[in-house]
Structures are given as structure tokens and as C-alpha cells.
């Protein structure tokens, strides 16, 4: 019943088929990942150059060949592609957006991606904006299912205290990484320390926080830096080898793949409850 109501609500708010954008250009990686799922190939006219980079993108190798790869947010090139919708990020400058509008282009701005609930809402909103609310609802349903299954599995298991270490940045409250850590059945030490946003953290404070595990980006050098750090190398987590190196494309995932990222992290933090081999639930 709730699903039916949601579907009706989405259908009512969606862009009517006649007005649905037929040529959509994406100016951020999150939108690239979502639009590959939401749109038929011929409606996706441009993606960022990062979309094909397997170290960052969760859709590398799946982006339609017909979509132009934009090396940068070059408005002249975007205009030349004649998109009827440009999808931009929360961090796009207001001045750039004004110029986009003045050029006669319509844009959809993705926002609220600092929480998993926000990511879910952004998926639904993007689906409405591009006229494919049903496909977005399916993505959101899978997202919910993965997270619900994950929550069920880690329920009752002690929550390890995890500190994201971006040498010297960490993730406090109101960050996607913080939400990811919490969804994976852990406590975000950054939030516990009263931090907000991605902020620098002094080594001495990280040391005294005494996390159960550090979360770092695989291949970023942060793991090596931790082991060489005069103080942090002596933390319990580093001494006992509790440094989780997460692939970058999962750590920065702000699309529906954020649920898969939470699953991946949980499999490292709760190996008995979330076996590494167990794949996330498939689409309902």
C-alpha cells in the first residue's frame, strides 16, 4: 500500500512525458552514475570524463559510447550539445549557474548528498527531473533493500568506533563518509568528537580518540602515512592492523552505489555477520 502511494505520488510529480528532457548532460560523477541507470543511451548526451575512470566511477565500462565525455565544465561545449537539461552538483557556483540559465539551458541541481536519506531523495528527484520516475523508484527500492538487509545483519553486533583518515582530514557529522560508517554498523568517531563536515584533525586528537579502526582510501597513501606517523602508528588500531582500505570508487559513491559501499565496509567491520562473499541483495 505504501509502495503504491509512493508510486502514485512520484507519478503525479514527475515531468510529463511530453516535457521530459530528451537530451540530458551531466556535469558531475554522481549524476553520471545515476543517469546511466535511469536513461536510455540516446537521451544521455554528455557525462564527465570521470565516468570511465574505474578508480572513481561505479559505471566505468557501462557509459553509452554515444555520450560525449566532457573534460571539464566548459559551457560553450555544453551549449553546442544542445541539452534540454544539465545536471549539476551542489558545489557548482551560483555564478556559473546564472550563466547556464542565461544561455537558455535548464538545470537540475543535486543536493543533500551528505546523508544516505539525502542520497535516496536525490535519486528520486533526479528521476522526476529527467522524466523516469519509475526507474528512479526501482533504484531507490534496491537502495532501501540493501540498507535494510545490512541493518538486519549487523543488529546487536558491537559497533566498532571508526575514524576516517584523509591525512589530515576526517569526516564529522553531516558527511557522506560519516553516514557510510554509521550505515555499516559502526560509530563515526569524527561525529563522536563533535566535528562537522570534512575537516582537518590534529594527529594528537586522532591519537587520543583511540578508534577501533581507521578508514582510509585504498591507494591514497594514507595507510602508509598512518604506519609512518610518529603518533598514529602507535594507536591500538594501527598496531593491531585495523586499517580498512576502501576502494575510492566506493568511498566517494554518492549515487545508489552508496548502499553497496556501506555493504562493503560492513563486510570488513562485521565479517561474521556480513560475509565478504555475500553479494548485496539484487533489485526487487
Amino acid at each position: 500500500m505504501r509502495g503504491l502511494l509512493l508510486a502514485l505520488l512520484l507519478a503525479a510529480q514527475a515531468v510529463p512525458a511530453a516535457e521530459a528532457p530528451l537530451r540530458v548532460a551531466s556535469l558531475n560523477l554522481t549524476a553520471d552514475e545515476l543517469l546511466v541507470e535511469l536513461l536510455p543511451a540516446d537521451r544521455l548526451v554528455a557525462v564527465t570524463r570521470w565516468a570511465d575512470d574505474a578508480s572513481m566511477s561505479n559505471v566505468a565500462g557501462r557509459v553509452p559510447a554515444t555520450a560525449v565525455r566532457l573534460p571539464r565544465a566548459d559551457l560553450e561545449r555544453i551549449i553546442a550539445l544542445r541539452p534540454d537539461l544539465v545536471v549539476v552538483s551542489e558545489y557548482t557556483d551560483a555564478d556559473f549557474l546564472r550563466l547556464v540559465e542565461k544561455s537558455g539551458l535548464r538545470y537540475h541541481r543535486m543536493s543533500g548528498l551528505e546523508t544516505l536519506a539525502g542520497i535516496r531523495a536525490a535519486i528520486v528527484q533526479l528521476g522526476r527531473a529527467v522524466g523516469t520516475p519509475d526507474a528512479a523508484a526501482r533504484l531507490a527500492a534496491r537502495f532501501d533493500a540493501v540498507l535494510a538487509e545490512l541493518a538486519r545483519r549487523v543488529e546487536g553486533d558491537p559497533r566498532p568506533r571508526v575514524l576516517y583518515w584523509g591525512d589530515p582530514h576526517t569526516a564529522g557529522a553531516g558527511t557522506a563518509i560519516g553516514s557510510l560508517v554509521e550505515a555499516a554498523g559502526a560509530t563515526n568517531v569524527g561525529r563522536e568528537m563533535g566535528l562537522r563536515g570534512i575537516v582537518p584533525l590534529a594527529g594528537e586528537k586522532a591519537f587520543t580518540a583511540d578508534p577501533d579502526a581507521f578508514l582510509v582510501t585504498l591507494g591514497s597513501g594514507a595507510s602508509v602515512a598512518l604506519r609512518r606517523h610518529p603518533l598514529l602508528s602507535r594507536t591500538r588500531a594501527v598496531r593491531e592492523g585495523h586499517v580498512v582500505e576502501m576502494p575510492n570508487h566506493l568511498l566517494v559513491a554518492l549515487s545508489d552505489r552508496a548502499a553497496d559501499a556501506a555493504w562493503w565496509l560492513a563486510s570488513r567491520l562485521h565479517p561474521a555477520r556480513v560475509p565478504e562473499a555475500a553479494p548485496p541483495p539484487k533489485l526487487p
Binding site: I79, S103, G104
Partner: peptide, 9 residues
Amino acid sequence: MGEVILWSV
């Protein structure tokens, strides 16, 4: 498209 690029951007 050229007009927009020239005069707006």
C-alpha cells in the same frame, strides 16, 4: 547555438 555562445558566454 553559435549566437548563444557568442552573446551569452
